[in-house]
């Protein structure tokens, strides 16, 4: 796995459609995973939005909405996919300095069904 390529936004598309599932026989291909971004008091709101726009290719309004969710709720699910896909995203997010984790999706798609954790974290970001 060459992880440095994970930083390029355009490398993501190809892997979404292709031969992903066959490489890891231990993981059932149909179990969805979430990429979660956690709030911290250091990362700039503008930077978080920039990362969402430039890496995931999200529109400004979608990026800002997710960023505000991180800011206000302490966390946000910003992407779904196979385990391998969200892990690749997580490494890219760590490359940007965002605090990202992966977790098995427990509810329906898009549901805000994640575990409530990390409540001790600060709520704000420097702006």
């Amino acid at each position: 796995m060459t992880l440095s390529v994970a930083l390029g936004p355009d490398t993501q598309e190809g892997t979404r459609t292709g031969t992903e599932a066959s490489t890891d026989s231990l993981t059932a291909p149909d179990i969805p995973w979430n990429l979660v971004i956690w709030n911290d008091p250091v990362n700039l709101m503008s930077y978080v939005s920039y990362v969402f726009q430039s890496y995931f290719g999200y529109t400004e309004s979608k990026a800002n909405k997710l960023m505000m969710e991180v800011h206000k709720k302490g966390r946000s699910i910003v992407a779904h996919g196979s385990k391998e896909q969200v892990e690749r995203h997580a490494v890219a997010m760590h490359g940007f300095g965002l605090w990202a984790t992966v977790e098995k999706a427990t509810g329906g798609p898009g549901g805000n069904s994640g575990k409530q954790g990390g409540s001790g974290q600060g709520k704000g970001k420097r702006g």
Partner: peptide
């Protein structure tokens, strides 16, 4: 903080992931 765990409540899986990815992340 620069090299966080990839899973919130699974240190074992996080460590396993670290073995595969941390060196590249440091280099990035």
């Amino acid at each position: 903080r620069l090299l966080p765990n990839v899973m919130k409540n699974d240190d074992g899986a996080s460590l396993e992931f670290r073995q595969l990815t941390e060196r590249s992340l440091r280099e990035t």
